[in-house]
Design a protein around this nucleic acid. Structure first.
Lengths: 208, 208
DNA sequence: GTCTATAAGTAGATAGAC
DNA sequence: GTCTATCTACTTATAGAC
């Protein structure tokens, strides 16, 4: 039964990718050995190499996985016709906090910085398949607001800079200081999200 | 002559730290071997180990170096009495762009994220000796403005979140996509700095 | 698909001569 | 202070039995 075979194989691959992702996030690319991944998965190295021909292939799979689902929520929000642009934007920011601070795909940035010289294609794919679509979706909400005169017109790149900047940095900070036992006190996600969101809303309603 | 000996030793140490820093920034902690550092410095591994007892000591020296000088510019700005708080703040932001996007100490964040679990003390020191003083200096400008009624009162942590967030993320993005040949087109430091600075100024002058 | 065994190379770190 | 030579442990990756 080739069908059964394939699905167990796929399931095992997904399981490996999930475990490997958490190890890469904790210890970096060079700091994570194939032996460590194999041990954490409860298989031998040779079996691991059966599923992924090399360490870079495994890493690429970890980076790639989750792109689509991370973008799905944002896309659904953009398509809704029941919300005003400013409300969509506030919800979009909340969604971004969840997907960047809490989910693996959003926490990949330091890893990609680490391997960018060795595997430029990984960085390229992350940019093309995740960052660009994410910006495009946010841009559509912005357009909807400016076209109907509800939001003021502003430099798109500066807008992305101000929206994504604090969120990505918060995610990075929480990685950097993951060992602090008062992490939530130093970097309180909810309070920062709220303040950030209010500022964006005020900014976009037009202040000049 | 112990004096001469010591100064040549110190000079060599500084030279090694500078070269090692650029290697760590390019390839990460685990991705940078002591052999690679030794080769780049034109000495053998044994000589390198004479100057630094271990890889973690060398890494700590790379992280630590530059704290003081990176904070000096900001401190000089805070002490000035010739500028209004809002002008100080605009200059402070410009200084932060220079020291975080362009200088090694500001680009260390992804590295610290990589080693934070293995060497929590490195993260601790970075927080205590660099981030906290930096925030304190910025906070003093803010206080000066609110005390004299020139700037509106707001949540300090949200303020830091909005000020540092976009700058650190810009630095990280430029690391992630360092291999792009149109890097400055995708991440134009000057234009983003200007837009960011204008937003902060408008926000602080009071919009409610 | 998973295993044992192993190749071929590199890691961090040290001993001791000069 | 720098060198040659070396140690042990670990790295990615593969060959071949089951």
């Amino acid at each position: 039964m080739p069908g059964t075979k394939e699905s167990t194989s796929t399931a095992r691959r997904i399981e490996i990718v999930e475990i490997a992702t958490s190890l890469f996030l904790e210890n970096g690319f060079a700091g994570t050995s194939m032996s460590a991944v194999a041990n954490a998965c409860g298989v031998t190295k040779a079996s691991l190499y059966h599923h992924f021909p090399g360490k870079d292939d495994l890493f690429a799979a970890c980076i790639t996985r989750g792109y689509a689902s991370a973008l799905d929520d944002l896309e659904a929000l953009v398509e809704t016709s029941e919300l005003k642009p400013i409300e969509k934007l506030e919800r979009a920011i909340s969604t971004l906090y969840d997907s960047i601070v809490a989910s693996p795909v959003g926490r990949m940035s330091p890893l990609i910085a680490e391997v960018s010289r060795t595997f430029p294609s990984v960085a390229q794919a992350f940019h093309q398949d995740y960052l660009i679509p994410q910006q495009a979706l946010l841009g559509r909400i912005l357009d909807e607001g400016t076209d109907t005169g509800q939001l003021r017109h502003l430099d798109r790149e500066v807008f992305f800079h101000i929206v994504f900047g604090p969120i990505v940095t918060l995610s990075l900070s929480r990685e950097m200081f993951a060992t602090f036992d008062d992490l939530d006190e130093h970097f309180p996600v909810e309070r920062l999200k709220e303040g950030h969101s209010e500022l964006i809303a005020t900014w976009l309603r037009g202040v000049e």
